[in-house]
Amino acid sequence: MPLTLERPDGVDAAIAALLSAPDAVPIAGGTDLLLDLEAGRVRSEHLVSLAGLPWARVERTGEGWSIGSTAPLRRVERSEGLAADHPGFVEAVRSVGSAALRHRATLGGNLGRASPASDLLPILLALDADVTLVGPAGPRRAKLDELLRGSRDLALGRGELIEGVALPPRAPSAYAWQRVRPANDISQVGVAIARPPGADRWAVALGGVLPRPCRVPAAEEALTAPTPSEEEVRRAARIASTAARFASDRRATAEYRRRLVDVLLRRALARASGGARP
């Protein structure tokens, strides 16, 4: 496979490089993209490295937390104060691959690749995260839920790059996942919950569902209390386990995934809301 790698040293140069070839794709950590290139799932002969862009920040701002798209996940999970403010987000970050993989894998890469089994999309959906983007027409800001079109499909314009993610200052949250082996496989199912500031209910989002990770509003309706009752938790878990499209594949059957959602939602709620552990 002939393949060229451009290493632009700034944002404008990176956008120009992306626009210069129809098959150009950005590469950050490359831990997912390189596998798809090798397997032919992504066809490109022009990689544009984001290593030279100034987007590796993880910081508190006036609005909350601002995390740059090229921040390695390992730096994100080890950022002082982030786990206290966003426990579920850090749980989700730590669930991605191994420590060595997370030293290279980035937040922007996980979003941009938009895998249905992503461990980061569900918690970011539950936190109602904003994504900041930069493209030929300048910067813009959008809700992740609106950008996420489908499996492996984020609605980015041509030449547009993910600049970072904005999270609220803090929110009770949890992320529960299940897979065959912890650091060497992707999740069969992931369940994220969060209660952002001002929200009147727990947000519930699922990963490992088709066509893409999604919120489950019907289950959220049962979870208005800060500490939901056992009956409310059971009802929400039942709704969530039937509300999404689950696939049967080599990792799990659809029926097993439904049962996992039921269990994992109850576990996540017990952790985040201080309720009894099921």
């Binding site: 790698l5 590469i27 950590g29 490359g30 490295s49 290593a51 993989l101 290279r104």
Partner: peptide, 16 residues
């Protein structure tokens, strides 16, 4: 890489 563990199978030499 600078003391941090990385997977050499998933890194392009020229991108480091």
């Amino acid at each position: 890489l600078a003391g941090e563990t990385v997977l050499s199978c998933l890194a392009l030499t020229r991108d480091l």
